[in-house]
Design a protein around this nucleic acid. Structure first.
Lengths: 350, 350
DNA sequence: CTGTTAGCGCGTTCAT
DNA sequence: ATGAACGCGCTAACAG
C-alpha cells in the first residue's frame, strides 16, 4: 500500500533516481527500455529497484521534456472543422486504429483556427480538414518550417505538404446515371444547405444528368431537409407518398439514403424492387444494413488517409522510404448493391 | 517578399536573436510581451527588429520548451468517450468559447484510455467524461501527482480532483409527474440501449412514477428505438398512430423528443394540445424550436463546467482563489414550455 | 557488462 | 539589454 509522495508535485526522473539510489541515466534507460547499441545493459536487480521507485512516486515521463530532446511528441493532431459530421468521426476512428498500437496519440483540434495552434504545438504530423483562402499562405509557411502536414482539399497542390483529394462530381454523376438505366421518375433528397458547399456539387450532378437525359426536372421531386436524419426521414416520406410516386431516389449523402430506406419500408415499399435508392459517400453503415445500400464514393479512403498520416508522423526520425509530399487522388467508384440493383430492359420501371 | 529560410528546419529563438543582432533573452521578452516587473524594458526599435526577424524566419515559440520551464502548456484536454453524442459537442463548444479568448487551446482526446496519455501530456487541466471502475485508482494517482482533473461522474467523491455531478433520477421523475397532472395514457420513447447506462435511470423514472400513480404500464406504450433520430421518428410515429393513442409522450432524451414533435406534426396532431411531449436533458435546441420543448435538466451545465475547468487551468500558476477540489452538483429543474404546458383540471385529457 | 558523468536542446528569467 | 543558470529527460562518452 506504499503511499508516499502525495505532495501534489509532479515527480521527476531525478526524484526516482534518488529514491532508487542510482543515476538519472540509469532510470532513463530502464524506463525507456533501450540502451545505446547492443545488449540489455541494465541488471535485473537495479531495474527492479528503479521500477519500484517509479511506481511508488507515481512517476510518468514528461512528454514535453522528451519532445525537446528527441524532436518527437508521439502525437498527431487532427484539425476537424465539423466534429458532428460522421465523416469526421470516421477520420478519427481510422487514425486511432492506426496510431494507438504504435504508441502515437491522436489529438483532435475542434477549432477552425489551427493556424495559431499548429505552429506552437509540435505534433509529429497534422491532418487538416479544410483550408480557407486566407489560410493558404500560413499553410505553406508551416510546411516550410518543419511541420508535417496532410491536407484535405480539392484544389490545392502539394507544396511541401501532402494533399488528399476526393472529387465528388463525376462519381455523383455515375450514381444518377445508374438510376437512369431503369427509371424516369427520379427524386433527389438533399440537405438544404446547398449554398456553395460540396452539397452543391452533388445536387448539380443530379440536375445535369437529368437534363442530359432529356428529362425535365420537377421541383416537387427535390426533397430538401434540415440536415438531420429525422429531417431526411420526413422528406423521404413526403416524396414516396406522392400520387405520382418517384420510382428511384438519389440521396446526396449516405445517411440520408439510410433514412430514406427506413421511410420506404415503413410505407410498405420494397426497396430495390418498388423503389430504388442510392446514396453518396460509401460509408460503412450502408454496406452493413439490409437491404445493403448502393452508393458511390472513394475506396478505402479513411484507412489510406490514416496510413499516410502515420507514415508522415513516423518518417520524421527515420527518413528511409519517406517519399516527397504529393497529391493523393481518390477516384470514386459505383457500388451496386441491393437498394438499387442493375436494371435490365425487362425490369425497367418505365 | 523576403522568403529566406525554407530549410525545413524549425527556427529557434537563437536564430531569431542572431538575425536581429540581439540576445535570446531580448527576443523572449519581446515575443512573450512581458518583462520582469514594471516598465516596458525593451525599446521600440529593437522590438521592431526582433519582430521582423521572427516574421522572416517564420518563427513560432515552441510550446514544449516553454512548458518545461513555466510548467504551463496553455492547453486543456477534454477526454470524451462518445464524440458522436451531442452532449460531447456541447462540452467542446462551451470550453472552446471560454478557453480560446484566454489563449488556451482545448485538445480533444477521443480514446477511452486517457490513463496512459494524461500522465505524459501535461495539460493545465483535464476533463474526463467517464471513469470505469478499474480506472479509479489511476485517477487518484494522477491527481496526487499534480494533474488538475475535472471528472464527470455520479458516484465518485472529490479526492484531489473536482467531480461534476448531475443526477438524472429525480428530474426525470418530475417530468413524468408533470405529465401525470393532465394525462393517464402516457407513452415512453427511449433508446434500446438501456442496459446499465444512464438510459436505465431515465426509463425507470417512468416505470416508477406510473406505478406510484396506480397506472399499469402498457408494453405497447414503450417505444424503443435504435438511438438515431430517424429511429426515434419512426418509433414516435408508431406510438402516435395507435388506435388507443397516448395523449402524452415522455422521451428520455431531448433529441428523441424533437423527433417525436416532428412526427406528431406530420400526423396532424397539435403538440401541446392534442398531445403533450416532454424531453430530458435541457439542450438548447429544444428551447429554440417551435413549439418550444418542455424538458427537465440541469441549468447552465456546460458553461459552469467550462468555467470550472478554466479556473483550474489558470489557477495552476496563481494560487489566489483556487479553492480545494470539490463536488459540483447540478440539480435538475423542470422547464414547462409549449410542448407540454401546465394542465388544469379543465384541460385534462382524461 | 554495468553504471555514471556531462552535456544537449529549448525558452524563460534572475542578476548584472 | 545581456550572460548565464534553470528546468526537464535523453544519450554519447566514459569509468569501474
Amino acid at each position: 500500500m506504499a503511499k508516499a509522495s502525495s505532495t501534489g508535485v509532479r515527480p521527476t526522473i531525478r526524484m526516482v533516481a534518488e529514491l532508487a539510489g542510482v543515476s538519472t541515466a540509469t532510470v532513463s534507460y530502464v524506463l525507456s527500455g533501450r540502451r545505446g547499441d547492443g545488449g540489455p545493459g541494465v541488471s535485473d536487480p537495479t531495474a527492479e529497484k528503479v521500477k519500484a521507485a517509479a511506481e511508488r512516486l507515481g512517476y510518468r515521463p514528461n512528454q514535453a521534456a522528451r519532445a525537446i530532446r528527441t524532436g518527437r511528441t508521439n502525437t498527431v493532431i487532427l484539425s476537424l472543422t465539423m466534429l458532428s459530421d460522421p465523416w469526421s468521426l470516421s477520420v478519427i476512428e481510422s487514425v486511432q486504429k492506426a496510431a494507438v498500437p504504435r504508441g502515437i496519440t491522436p489529438m483532435i483540434l475542434g477549432d477552425a483556427d489551427w493556424v495559431k495552434v499548429l505552429g506552437a504545438h509540435n505534433a509529429d504530423a497534422v491532418f487538416v480538414d479544410a483550408v480557407r483562402e486566407e489560410q493558404r499562405d500560413a499553410l505553406r509557411k508551416l510546411a516550410e518550417h518543419g511541420t508535417s502536414l496532410v491536407v484535405f482539399d480539392e484544389v490545392l497542390e502539394a507544396e511541401g505538404f501532402d494533399v488528399i483529394r476526393s472529387i465528388a462530381g463525376p462519381g455523383c454523376r455515375m450514381a444518377v446515371e445508374h438510376l437512369l438505366h431503369g427509371h424516369r421518375r427520379i427524386a433527389c433528397l438533399t440537405p438544404a444547405t446547398v449554398a456553395g458547399t460540396s452539397g452543391g456539387t452533388r445536387y448539380r450532378a443530379y440536375s445535369e444528368a437529368l437534363a442530359d437525359a432529356g428529362i425535365p426536372e420537377r421541383e416537387d421531386y427535390v426533397g430538401l431537409f434540415d440536415g438531420t436524419s429525422a429531417g431526411a426521414y420526413a422528406a423521404a416520406t413526403r416524396l414516396l407518398s406522392m400520387p405520382e410516386r418517384p420510382t428511384a431516389l438519389y440521396a446526396t449523402t449516405d445517411y440520408a439514403a439510410v433514412s430514406a430506406i427506413n421511410a420506404a419500408q415503413r410505407l410498405g415499399l420494397a426497396v430495390g424492387k418498388d423503389v430504388d435508392i442510392i446514396g453518396v459517400g460509401n460509408t460503412v453503415e450502408g454496406e452493413r444494413m439490409s437491404p445493403s445500400l448502393s452508393t458511390v464514393g472513394p475506396v478505402d479512403f479513411f484507412d489510406k488517409l490514416a496510413r499516410l498520416l502515420l507514415r508522415r508522423a513516423t518518417a520524421q526520425s527515420s527518413p528511409d522510404a519517406a517519399k516527397d509530399p504529393g497529391v493523393l487522388d481518390f477516384p470514386w467508384h459505383l457500388f451496386v448493391r441491393e437498394s438499387a440493383p442493375h436494371r435490365s430492359a425487362a425490369t425497367r420501371l418505365y
